[in-house]
């Protein structure tokens, strides 16, 4: 008979239409089976196991074997990972994502932020821009008092720095918040504007060079289950995961942004780059955000946090030049 097969259950909490599902995650699942010659199989459960915020514990305790976690959902738990959520990093997800993986691999991994699980891959998603219902932003003063949905704790800090009133509501309420005018805007990449069908309400996108922050995502597998897989199979799986998967995710994000931008422009949404003056204002206003992360990361044991951030930015510049 066939060799004993390891089935890895995958907790499917991202919505069925999530941009990475079809082009990246499902092919990856199939690839796992192929490279291990059927000895390891990833089985997608019909729905999520546990809540979105519980996914780390879900994998850690083996409720499901594999899941994607968003460190941003559990503030305070993964402070050093917030380096990937910082604003003004990089426009191109295809550069940002693998660069972030390399920084994780080189500097952050040793602090074992995801102890008890094995990191299959990690990436930063698409940088966000100012999306709102009234006008292209040309001066920070326009933002003062605007109500915007804040996608994360980091975004709350950024909004506070810019004089925006952050509204903390789940993204699932985005359409209701927008259509009824509870909020005037949000920080979004292009693609989610279409996903949440708010393109007829938020008709202005001010593109901030380097973005106003993004989410970090990590694909984790339960450690015990992982260690039960033979060493060569583990190596084979990592061969198709790690930076390779991170780059694939980044490329899909980038492509999604390109097509979404086109669709938005065709749909009458005004998209403009932030002026040099505005960028100067934003850069100045956001200086404390970097500093706050460096301080937090140092407290968490990342002694050279300032240098790590510098190295990350250098990595991004290099990556951007290569393209």
């Amino acid at each position: 008979g066939a060799a004993a097969e390891t089935v890895l259950t995958y907790s499917t909490w991202l919505p069925p239409g999530y941009v990475l599902n079809e082009p990246v995650l499902k092919p990856w699942s199939a690839e796992v089976e192929k490279v291990t010659e059927g000895r390891v199989r990833v089985e997608w459960l019909p729905k999520a196991v546990g809540s979105a915020a519980a996914q780390f514990d879900v994998v850690h305790d083996g409720l499901a074997d594999v899941s994607i976690i968003l460190p941003g959902y559990t503030p305070g738990r993964f402070p050093i990972m917030e380096i990937g959520e910082l604003p003004l990093l990089e426009n191109d997800p295809a550069v940002l994502s693998p660069s972030f993986y390399r920084v994780y691999d080189q500097y952050l991994k040793q602090l074992k932020p995801f102890e008890g699980t094995h990191v299959l891959s990690i990436w930063a998603s698409t940088p966000t821009h100012i999306v709102n219902d009234s006008a292209i932003i040309t001066d920070v003063a326009q933002l003062k008092g605007m109500k915007m949905r804040a996608p994360s704790a980091t975004a709350v800090a950024i909004m506070n720095q810019l004089g925006i009133v952050p509204i903390q509501k789940p993204v699932s309420e985005m359409y209701e918040l927008a259509s009824t005018g509870v909020v005037d805007g949000t920080f979004f990449p292009f693609n989610p504007i279409l996903d949440w069908k708010v393109q007829d309400i938020f008709k202005y996108v001010t593109v901030v060079d380097g973005g106003l922050g993004q989410s970090v995502l990590a694909l984790l597998v339960n450690e015990r289950k992982w260690n039960a897989i033979s060493e060569e199979d583990r190596a084979a799986i990592m061969e198709i995961s790690g930076e390779k998967l991170s780059l694939a995710a980044g490329k899909v994000y980038a492509k999604g942004e390109e097509t979404s931008r086109k669709a938005l422009e065709e749909g009458g949404v005004t998209i403009k780059d932030a002026s040099a003056e505005l960028m100067t204002q934003i850069e100045k206003a956001l200086e404390p955000i970097d500093q706050a992360w460096i301080k937090k990361a140092e407290e968490e044991g990342l002694a050279n946090a300032g240098e790590v951030l510098k190295a990350f930015r250098a990595e991004l510049d290099k990556g951007a030049g290569a393209n």
Binding site: D57, T74, P75, G76, R77, P79, S152, A153, V156, Q168
Partner: peptide, 17 residues
Amino acid sequence: VQGSRVASYGDVTPFLQ
């Protein structure tokens, strides 16, 4: 058990910490 784990993680609420 979860409480002590959450304590060791340092989990806080997003806004009021």
